[in-house]
Write a protein that binds this DNA or RNA. Structure first.
Lengths: 226, 226, 226, 226
DNA sequence: TATGAATGAGCATTCATTCAT
DNA sequence: AATGAATGAATGCTCATTCAT
C-alpha cells in the first residue's frame, strides 16, 4: 500500500525498476532463509517485497532463477565483508598476534551473522539440486577468502614475521581452526554465541596457529599480555 | 534403542514388522538424502520401501516424525563409526604421529561418505524447522565425538606423549584441522575426494596439531619420514 | 455428498472405481463440449462428476490424457450408432429408395445429435494440438463408416439393385450428399434442424445418389410416391 | 469496408495506423490459427506483429474483439477467392464438364489452403462461444457461395445446358460432393492432399453431379475424353 | 496389519488487462 | 499514439493425510 515509489517521485521511472528488483531479491533472501527453498512460496516472497506475484516473475522469471540470483547476491555481500576483514592484515602493526586475533574475531563475527548462517544452510541444502551454484561458491566463495588470506600470510612470511612453507595450506588451517569449533558451539547456527566466546575462540585459534607457523617474536610479545 | 537387534519371542510376526519399519527408515534416508525434506514425498519413500503409503503412516505417523527417526538412525550409525575410529587411539603404538594420521585418515573417510554428507546436508538444512533435532545432534552428535577424542588426548597427555592443557579444545581443533579443509576441496560434498588427497589432508592436519600439542619425541620420530 | 455410491452399497468396492472413472469421462465430455479443451478446467469437470479434483488425476493422470480418453469414448459411441444404422441396408426390402432414405434420415439424426456436433467441434479444433487423435479418427472414425457403407453398396450392386463401379467412392459421395447440406442449414450445429427438414435432406440426397448409381427399378418405384 | 485500400489525405500518419492495425490482424490470424483462441495469448500476437501489448488493446480493445475482427477478415478474404472462382462459370465455353471440373478443382484448392482449414477450425471450435460469428458466417460465408453458384447453375439451366429443378439444392450438392470426400482424405486438414488427388476428386464430383443434373450433351462430350 | 481410493489444501506459473509515462 | 511495468484472477498439478476394506 505504501510502496517505496511514493517517496521519491522524481526518480521513480529510472530507479523504480532497480529498487523493485532489489526489494524482491532482499525479500527472497529473507524468506528462503526462514523457510528453505522448497518450503518458501513465491506468494510470500512477493508479499514481503510489497509486490504482486507476477512482478516477481517479470523480474526473475523462475523460482529457481530467483533462488540463484538471491544466493549469488548474498554470497557476494558476505564475501566482500570477509575480504575487507582479511585486508586488515596488510598492515598488522607491531603485535602480530593481536592483529591476527582481531582479524579472527572479526571473521567470526561475519561467520556468525544470521545472514551467513542462512546462506551456508541454503547452500548446503540445495547444492545438490542446483549444481551451477557450485560455480558461485567456487569462484566467488570460500576459495577467494583463503586465497586472499594466503596472500597476506605469504607477505608476512616474506617480511619474516611468520614461517609458512605453504601459505595456502596455512590459510586453510587458520580458517578451519577459527570456524570449526564455532559450528558445534552455536548449535549449527541456531544459538547465538556471546561475543566474549568468539574472542576466546579467536585467541585459541591464533594460539595454535602461531604455535605452528609463528616466530620467536610472537611468543615473547605475548608473554606481556594477560 | 529400537534397533533391529532386539530379540522378540514371536519371531515371525515381530520380525516382519521390524523389518518393514527398518525398510521404511532406510528408504526414507535414501529419498530424503536425494531430494531434501520438503521435496521428498511419502509416496516415493513408500515405493522405495516396497510398501503402501498408509503403511508408512501406520509405522511412523507423520512425515515429520519419519524424518526425525530417519535422521536419528543415520546419526547413530555415523557416530558409531566415528567413535570406533577414535577408540584406536587407546593403543597408539610407538609412532604417535603415525597413529594420529591413521585415525585422521579414517575419520575423513567417514566424514566423506555419501551418507555423512547427506546427513550433514539434511541437518544443516532442516535444523531450523526441526528444533528438537538439536538434541539429537547435541547428545549423540559431534559433541560425543570431541568428548571421546578429548578423553584419548587427555590420556596421551597423562602418559607424556602430548602436551594439551585443555584436551577438549585440542580435540575440537584436531577435528577442525582435519575436516575444515575438506569442505572446500570436495565442493561441499558434491565431488569425490581421492583417497591420496585425504591422506595428505590428514598428514597436514596432524603436522600442525603436533606442532601445537606434540612433544619433542614426535618430531624426532618424524624426521626420519619422507 | 449425493454420490452414486450410496445407492448400491453392496457392489461399491468393485464397481465404485469403474463407475467413478466413467462418471469422470462423462463429465469431461459434457464440460469439454461446453467449453472447449483449453477453456475447460479440471476443477469444473471434477465438480460435474461429483469427485474431488485429485481423483480425476488419479484416474486419468493428465488433462490431455483425460481429453484423449474422453474423445475416444465419444467417438466409439457415435461410431457404433452410425454402424448400426448402416447395417440396416443388409436387408433393404423391396423399396430400395425408401430403405436408403430411411438410412439417410437415421444417419442425419445421429449426425445432428448434440454429442455428435460437440465431438466434431472438439476434433476439428484440437486435432492440430493432439496429433495422435488422428489415429482415433482414422481407425475408428469416418473411415469405418464409409467402409461399412461401401460394403453394403457393393452387395447391392452384386444383387443388381445398384450400379456402382467404385463402391467406396459411392459411399463417400452418399455421405457427402447427406451431411454436406446440413452443415450450413444447422449453422454449424448451433441451430436445431427440424426433423421434417432432415427427412427432406435425406430424400434429396438419395434422389441425386440414385440418379448416379441407381437402376431403372428405383425410378419406376419412386414414380408412385408424392 | 475498412480495408487498407481506403486512400487518406494525411498519408504518412494515417497509413501508419492502418498498417499497424492490419499487421496486428495478420499476426492475430497467424497465432490464432496455430494455437486456437483460448491458447493464443495477446503477448504472442503483439510480438508477432512487432507491437507492444497495449497497442493491441488500443486498436482492438479486447481479445474477443480482436478475434472477431480477425475471423471476419479471414472469412472475407476466403469468400472473395471462392466467389471469383465460381464467376468463371459465367462463360463455361463449349465443354461444360471441363468447365465444372476446372471450377471444382479451383474450389478445392481454395478449400485446402492452410488459411481455409485454419479458419474453419477456428469457426467450428469457437462458434459456440462467439454466437455473433454466426452472422459473419451466415451473411458472408458459405451461404454466399452456394447462392452465387446457384445463380450460375440457374443460368446454365436456362440456356439448356443443365437440368436443375432447384438450383439452390443443386449448388449445395455440388459443393457437398466436392468437399465432403476431401475432409477424410486430408485427415481433417492435417495432411496435404496432392494436386492430382484434388483433380480426381473434382472429376468424380462433377461426374456424379452431371449424372443427376446434366443433359445428353454432357455425356457425348465426355465419351471422347480419356 | 496392509492397502487402494479419495480428498482438502496449497503452489508455481500464466494471462488478460490497466496505469503512468 | 505507443509502451514498460504491474497486477488480480485463474489453472494445472502435487502432496500429506485419512477412510473403508
Amino acid at each position: 500500500m505504501t510502496g517505496p515509489s511514493t517517496t521519491t517521485p522524481g526518480r521513480k521511472a529510472s530507479r523504480g525498476r532497480i529498487d523493485k528488483r532489489q526489494a524482491i531479491l532482499d525479500a527472497a533472501f529473507t524468506v528462503f532463509a526462514r523457510e528453505g527453498y522448497a518450503n518458501a512460496c513465491v506468494k510470500e516472497i512477493a508479499a514481503e517485497a510489497n509486490v504482486a506475484k507476477p512482478t516477481v516473475y517479470n523480474h526473475l522469471s523462475d523460482k529457481a532463477n530467483l533462488f540463484r540470483h538471491t544466493i549469488e547476491m548474498a554470497a557476494e555481500t558476505a564475501m566482500a565483508e570477509n575480504l575487507a576483514v582479511v585486508e586488515r592484515l596488510a598492515d598488522p602493526g607491531d603485535d602480530l598476534r593481536a592483529a591476527l586475533e582481531d582479524v579472527g574475531h572479526r571473521l567470526l563475527l561475519c561467520y556468525c551473522s544470521d545472514e551467513s548462517w542462512a546462506l551456508r544452510r541454503l547452500l548446503h541444502a540445495e547444492l545438490v539440486r542446483f549444481p551451477d551454484l557450485q560455480e558461485t561458491v567456487r569462484g566467488g566463495g570460500s576459495h577467494r577468502l583463503t586465497e586472499a588470506l594466503a596472500d597476506r600470510l605469504a607477505r608476512l612470511t616474506l617480511t619474516g614475521r611468520l614461517r609458512t612453507s605453504d601459505p595456502a595450506l596455512a590459510a586453510e588451517q587458520f580458517i578451519a581452526l577459527l570456524t570449526g569449533p564455532v559450528e558445534a558451539r552455536s548449535g549449527f547456527g541456531t544459538r547465538q554465541v556471546p561475543d566474549a566466546d568468539l574472542r576466546a575462540l579467536a585467541r585459541a585459534a591464533v594460539h595454535t596457529f602461531l604455535q605452528a607457523f609463528g616466530t620467536e617474536a610472537d611468543f615473547t610479545a605475548t608473554d606481556a599480555r594477560p
